[in-house]
């Protein structure tokens, strides 16, 4: 028995009010990292369990990056536990299904339509992100979906800011070439 029951309840209440509002962000990252809804749910649960256990010693950073860092660690431990074998189940975010519709990754070409961007539906954009290799997918999601700053991404991913910048640059180049290769009409670019 640790602590007074009321102290535990008070801690649980504070934790719920502080951490639960970010569950959609945590779930989104889990979804993109695990590429499978059921695994993502497990990881989110694991994340909140770990976060609650360490809540007493939590002094910052902001709650969202703190939770995302815990979630990321949970996902990576799970990958290690599975011996690096990423699962693929019948899921629209699944590697294999997405790969069938995706060309092999290329660095961006210098073709004349280089500045043009095709219009894609949401499903296609999600699929394009989902097919990025792990570290690039992670940095794109943390930036574009979770809206973290470079500093926060560096904290979550445990890398220097310079690495965040170079990864993000590579990730966007990869995404852009895949983006333009996927079938869709052309859009005007933003000057």
């Amino acid at each position: 028995m640790t602590g007074h029951p009321n102290a535990e309840q008070e801690k649980a209440r504070r934790f719920r009010d502080a951490a639960l509002p970010y569950i959609d962000d945590v779930f989104a990252l889990a979804r993109y990292l695990m590429r499978n809804a059921e695994d993502a749910e497990d990881m989110v649960q694991e994340c909140y369990l770990r976060a609650f256990q360490h809540f007493e010693s939590y002094r910052g950073p902001a709650m969202k990056p703190w939770l995302l860092a815990i979630l990321r660690n949970a996902c990576y431990s799970e990958f290690t536990r599975r011996g690096k074998r990423e699962v693929s189940l019948d899921d629209p975010w699944d590697d294999d299904r997405a790969a069938e519709q995706m060309p092999i990754w290329q660095e961006p070409s210098t073709s004349p339509d280089v500045s043009l961007i095709r219009a894609h539906d949401d499903e296609t954009i999600r699929r394009l992100i989902a097919t990025l290799p792990q570290p690039f997918r992670e940095v794109i999601v943390l930036r574009e979906v979770n809206d973290l700053s470079y500093q926060e991404i560096a904290e979550v991913a445990g890398v220097p800011i310079g690495t965040v910048m170079s990864r993000l640059a590579r990730a966007r180049s990869m995404l852009r070439s895949a983006w333009n290769l996927a079938e869709a009409p052309m859009l005007e670019t933003v000057p």
């Binding site: 280089v114 500045s115 961007i117 954009i125 966007r172 852009r176 859009l187 670019t189 933003v190």
Partner: peptide
């Protein structure tokens, strides 16, 4: 061109 393309992609 690159700046325009990345901005457009980000906007999308």
């Amino acid at each position: 061109d690159k700046l325009g393309a990345f901005r457009a992609m980000r906007k999308a």
